[in-house]
């Protein structure tokens, strides 16, 4: 993990997945909706909340809306939320080598 000293309970988490039909990257938002921007994701501060929401997200996966939802670590600053790890950062934006493609370019998969 990026910060091994830090326990789960202190970290901020959001839930992410890909849509089954389009493969688009989505994040679990208010009202158990799936948002196409990480800014709209529900941020979990407590482990129990996050795990409970993940169960509901997995139900959405079982119902064929999304594929394999999972929790990721995020950091918050300047009123913005950003994934901690490079992989999730790239998922939230698009390829770092093609600024003209993906979410960063306003494209919706």
């Amino acid at each position: 993990m990026a910060r091994p000293a830090e326990g789960f309970a202190e970290g901020l988490r959001v839930i992410t997945a890909n849509r089954l039909d389009s493969g688009a990257v989505v994040w679990f938002g208010p009202g158990d909706s799936w948002a196409h921007r990480i800014a709209a994701a529900t941020i979990f501060e407590r482990a129990e909340e996050a795990e409970a929401a993940l169960e509901r997200a997995k139900a959405a996966a079982a119902a064929g809306v999304v594929v394999e939802p999972y929790l990721i670590e995020v950091v918050r600053g300047d009123d913005r939320v950003r994934p901690l790890r490079p992989r999730e950062l790239i998922r939230s934006l698009g390829p770092s080598v093609r600024a003209d493609l993906g979410i960063q370019a306003g494209q919706q998969q």
Binding site: N18, S22, G23, A24, V25, V67, R87, I90, R91, G94, P95, G102, Q109
Partner: peptide, 9 residues
């Protein structure tokens, strides 16, 4: 040949 990758299939 169909994968699910980071941004899409």
């Amino acid at each position: 040949g169909l994968y699910l990758q980071l941004h899409a299939y």
